[in-house]
Simulated scan of single mutants.
Amino acid sequence: MSDPASGYGLWGLVAINSLIFIVFAFSFFKPNTARDWRTFGGFSAFIVALFAEMYGFPLTIYVLSGWLQTRFPQVNLMNHDSGHLWWTMTGRHGNPHLAFPHIASIALIFAGFYLLSISWHVLYEAQRAGRLATTGPYAKVRHPQYVAFVVIMIGFLLQWPTLVTLMMFPILVAMYVHLAHQEERDSEQRFGQVWRDYAERTPRFIPRLSGSGTAHAR
């Protein structure tokens, strides 16, 4: 399938867009350990799966075509705009790029990459000094880089949901939670009471809305 008018079959765009976001993430995350590479590898697989459907083969549209055509008979499913499924399934008209889901997705993606970037700088400086990272985003949550990857993925799911990426998302979140627990065991072994005090006052993933009270691991 190669139809530039439909926006599919453009495998060159699949490769280019995948590389742009993977390299962008790499430049901010800079994986070093085997654990880092597992984190980055899972995110990269998500990105490739996303753009393979966005510009390559619209598997989700094909699988759901019977239901979509029955529910929305006036919609041309092979029109690229129809791939914005949140927009299509709510019966919206006009330009999906100006709709709330798309605008919100862009905001989330940029916010995620920004969080990834500043988190890496804080972590790098802490590692270079041989101390625990507790400032910047690390003062709010213990694993801001994992939070950043999840926020970016949510942004992409809001913009262009696919069956494959929707299935991958909870698996990747579970993997990041598992890796976070591994990192915490290593940090506690290395930093001892300093880590335990930090973990007591800092949530794992979800920042507290209030500055008061005792933080519990989440």
Rank of each mutant, 00 (worst) to 15 (best):
S117C: 13
Q145H: 06
I47T: 10
G56R: 10
D3Q: 09
L158Y: 05
I103M: 08
M54Q: 11
R208S: 12
N79A: 04
H97F: 01
Y146I: 00
S18E: 00
H181F: 13
I20M: 10
A126W: 02
A34G: 08
R142P: 08
A99E: 06
I47C: 02
L64T: 08
F29W: 01
A199K: 10
H84A: 03
R142L: 04
T134W: 01
A15E: 04
Y55K: 13
F40K: 03
T90N: 04
E125I: 07
H121I: 12
V173W: 09
V177Y: 14
I206T: 14
P203T: 13
W195D: 04
Q189K: 14
Y8P: 06
I171L: 15
A217L: 14
P161C: 09
Y114G: 02
P161N: 10
T70A: 02
R92H: 06
Q182M: 12
P207T: 12
T135S: 10
R38K: 12
S187R: 09
W67I: 08
M175R: 14
V151R: 08
P170V: 15
L157G: 13
S18R: 04
V48P: 07
F156W: 13
I20N: 05
P73Q: 02
N76C: 00
Q145S: 08
T60F: 07
A52T: 15
P203G: 11
D197H: 03
V194N: 04
A215N: 10
L172E: 12
I109L: 02
A174C: 15
G213H: 05
W37Y: 07
V164Y: 12
I106D: 05
P96T: 02
D186K: 11
